[in-house]
């Protein structure tokens, strides 16, 4: 691996381009992700955003970023990014702006736009080789409108549209869509999953991608105190637990070749993660739904066994595999 600026948390850039006083919830994991992302990319950035919580960062007359922000329709953030990239390229070609005035074009959306509504525009942009970054803050539901189900919602989560009920005690039973694999199948130069609780891993990944031309895509698990139902102070702990239980693997794919960037020494039981959030509370109360918890655990086990085989590593699972 090439040299990195980011060895420990102390290497986090001091400069902030996010300013305090945004209207987002206290303890918002998505906003923390954006803050760190911006720190590493530096000042010369233009964001293209589609509807989601982070859209509300800009409620007139206040703006919490020192960079530019463009808002597009739900389905079309990557198309907006194409337009801006083309305009910048034309200005560069005509020497109307200097190379050091060039901007990095960054799409930032929630999982609603990334996994559902804007997926085809993203597919097109990746396929065209658009030189841009995509940062998804994945809070696993439509958080902005009150936490409705999205195709990023994991098995066992209740949302306002998939509540735990007599007919479906487990909440949502649909598989979470594997956006990493969908993106990777396009063979872009860079795709990664990141976690706000693993800031060093995240900063290194952004750094690594910065030398590449073409689509550079990041999916951040974004703990959402409001939608997931936990005290805002727990946001980092919960993000860590997602990684330590193996629910949220940290990985990257360079030109389609996948590698896991962090292998937990021994996976903790998924139950420890599920227990921390009200969206999974029905799995424990009034009656423990052990079959669903086991099912979630088995999926995690299967995933990591495949990883161990593919990458030739050893992994200690949380439970015995039959």
């Amino acid at each position: 691996m090439s040299e990195t600026r980011f060895k420990t948390l102390r290497d986090t850039p001091l400069e902030d381009y996010l300013t305090p006083g945004s209207p987002l919830c206290a303890g918002c994991g998505g906003q923390l992700g954006l803050r760190i992302f911006h720190k590493v990319l530096g000042r010369n950035v233009v964001f293209v955003n589609a509807a989601g919580c982070l859209t509300l960062m800009f409620v007139y007359p206040y703006a919490p970023l020192r960079s530019s922000w463009m808002y597009t329709a739900f389905a079309s953030a990557p198309a907006g990014a194409q337009g801006i990239r083309d305009a910048l390229d034309i200005l560069l070609a005509k020497h109307r702006i200097e190379p050091d005035e060039d901007l990095k074009v960054v799409v930032v959306t929630g999982d609603g736009a990334a996994y559902d509504i804007g997926l085809q525009a993203t597919s097109g942009a990746i396929q065209r080789g658009l030189d841009f970054y995509y940062f998804v803050y994945d809070n696993e539901a439509y958080g902005n409108t009150g936490f409705q189900w999205s195709s990023a919602t994991p098995v066992g989560s209740s949302t306002t549209t998939t509540p735990s009920s007599r007919f479906s005690p487990a909440g949502s039973l649909a598989e979470k869509k594997d956006l990493f694999e969908i993106w990777r199948a396009h063979k872009p130069p860079y795709v990664a999953t990141v976690s706000v609780a693993h800031a060093v891993d995240m900063m290194r990944k952004i750094e690594r991608s910065m030398g590449m031309r073409g689509p550079k895509l990041f999916i951040a698990l974004a703990p959402c105190p409001t939608g997931w139902g936990f005290d805002p102070s727990e946001a980092i702990r919960i993000a860590k637990l997602a990684v330590e239980t193996g629910v949220w693997p940290l990985k990257e794919a360079i030109n389609g070749e996948t590698r896991h960037t962090y292998i937990p020494r021994a996976l903790r039981p998924v139950e420890e993660y599920l227990k921390t959030q009200a969206r999974f509370a029905h799995l424990f109360k009034p009656k423990k739904q052990q079959e669903i918890i086991n099912m979630i655990q088995e999926r995690v086990n299967e995933y990591w066994l495949r990883v161990a085989e593919a990458e030739g590593i050893t992994i200690k699972l949380a439970t015995e595999v039959k």
Binding site: L14, A26, G27, R35, A199, D231, A235, I236
Partner: peptide, 29 residues
């Protein structure tokens, strides 16, 4: 400093934090 989602913490020259109480939302991370 790293984990404050609102950038309400800056580091002083001695590396210790300074909290912007005008804007810290009290998430307590």
């Amino acid at each position: 400093f790293v984990y404050c989602p609102d950038a309400a913490i800056t580091l002083r020259s001695d590396g210790k934090p300074e909290i912007d109480y005008d804007n810290c939302k009290g998430c307590l991370i």
